[in-house]
């Protein structure tokens, strides 16, 4: 549906030019919710803007529906944009227009007749659940409501692609939750290909099918989100995920020398197997669970446990071996 082919974007500067996006190639599938995550300055927003050419790549090509759009201009570019809705971090609503007029504005641009606008605006408002706010001005809406209007405006014309630039970064956690739910509903209902930019792994975890992790203008890894969570391939990704899953131990554990702590990761089918109780029974060791969590990502469980084994050295070694073989991943995170 959307394909980046060796995209590089360089911002010229007097002293030295800045490479915001560095030779990025990947594809976003039709109908999926694709996330691009990274810290600020990673180039994700710049990359997103090449899809509707708010930003032209310095080199490389962007394909939308197998059409190379990189050099589109004028009327062709306008036509492309009519098929791509966009949602912004700061909502970007026209303050001098009512909610209704804001949505009607997008439809007018798309060349809809007054009759069509009269049916399409209420339809879009209904999808986002703001029918009763049609005549309110943006200033009188909460952040969450403003973003809903932003979403209604973006989908009113029934585009095939929806670009979301940090759609929840200006919202509180609860509102974030409901806006993400809405984006997911819209994705399922209309089959609209959705691309979401965010710096929060949490957002990705909630609604995305696949994710690309960006840092310094490059894509570090790209996979199904479950796989990225279960086995992040890059230090940067590990950091992001640890921050989200947040298994932090008090310092009194981590400060001790030779105090071995095992981090056990189990996923999918194995998450439900009783590896822990079997280990205790088989090897005559004591197991002290220090921290633990099971995350359900895309409906699949991903378990993480921080444990400490006590017992005679042989038993512990064999128990560790057993755990290593019967779980997805096990590593020693403290001690020798």
């Amino acid at each position: 549906m959307i394909r980046f082919e060796n995209i590089s974007i360089v911002f010229p500067d007097k002293k030295r030019s800045f490479k915001a996006v560095d030779d990025v190639s990947f594809e976003i599938k039709k109908g999926e919710i694709f996330g691009i995550v990274g810290s600020s300055g990673a180039g994700k927003s710049t990359l997103l803007r090449t899809i509707n050419l708010l930003q032209r790549p310095t080199s490389g090509n962007v394909y939308v529906d197998e059409q190379n759009i990189t050099d589109l201009k004028g009327e062709d570019l306008r036509k492309l944009r009519l098929n791509i809705g966009m949602v912004f971090q700061q909502f970007n609503l026209i303050r001098s227009k009512t909610v209704y007029e804001n949505i009607a504005f997008a439809l007018k641009i798309a060349g809809k007749t007054a009759e069509e606008i009269k049916t399409l605006v209420p339809e879009a408002l209904k999808v986002v659940g703001l029918t009763e706010k049609a005549n309110a001005y943006p200033a009188n809406l909460s952040g969450g409501q403003k973003q809903r209007v932003g979403i209604a405006r973006a989908i009113a014309n029934k585009p095939q692609i929806l670009l979301c630039d940090e759609p929840t970064s200006a919202l509180d956690p609860e509102t974030t939750e409901s806006v993400l739910k809405l984006l997911k509903e819209i994705n399922e209902k209309f089959g609209i290909t959705t691309v979401i930019i965010t710096h929060e792994m949490n957002v990705i975890k909630k609604i995305c099918n696949r994710v690309a992790v960006m840092s310094g203008g490059e894509v570090l890894e790209l996979d199904e989100i479950f796989n990225v969570f279960a086995s992040p391939g890059h230090e940067f990704t590990k950091g992001l995920i640890n921050h989200t899953i947040n298994l932090e131990l008090p310092e009194r554990f981590t400060e001790k020398d030779n105090y071995e702590i095992l981090k056990i990761v189990y996923k999918g089918d194995k998450a439900e197997e009783a590896v822990i109780s079997q280990t205790i029974r088989k090897f005559n060791v004591d197991m002290n669970i220090l921290h633990g969590k099971i995350e359900y990502i895309s409906g699949k469980p991903l378990g993480i446990l921080l444990v400490r084994l006590d017992g005679n050295v042989n038993d512990v070694t064999r128990a560790k071996e057993y755990i290593r073989n019967n779980t997805y991943k096990m590593n020693v995170i403290n001690g020798n």
């Binding site: 509707n52 944009r81 912004f88 970007n92 504005f105 007018k108 641009i109 798309a110 014309n157 670009l163």
Partner: peptide, 21 residues
Amino acid sequence: DKGVIEAATAFGASHLRIIKD
């Protein structure tokens, strides 16, 4: 707000319409 101008551009508004609306 530059963002509002960007939004209108993203939706495919012509320059004349951006000025007017």
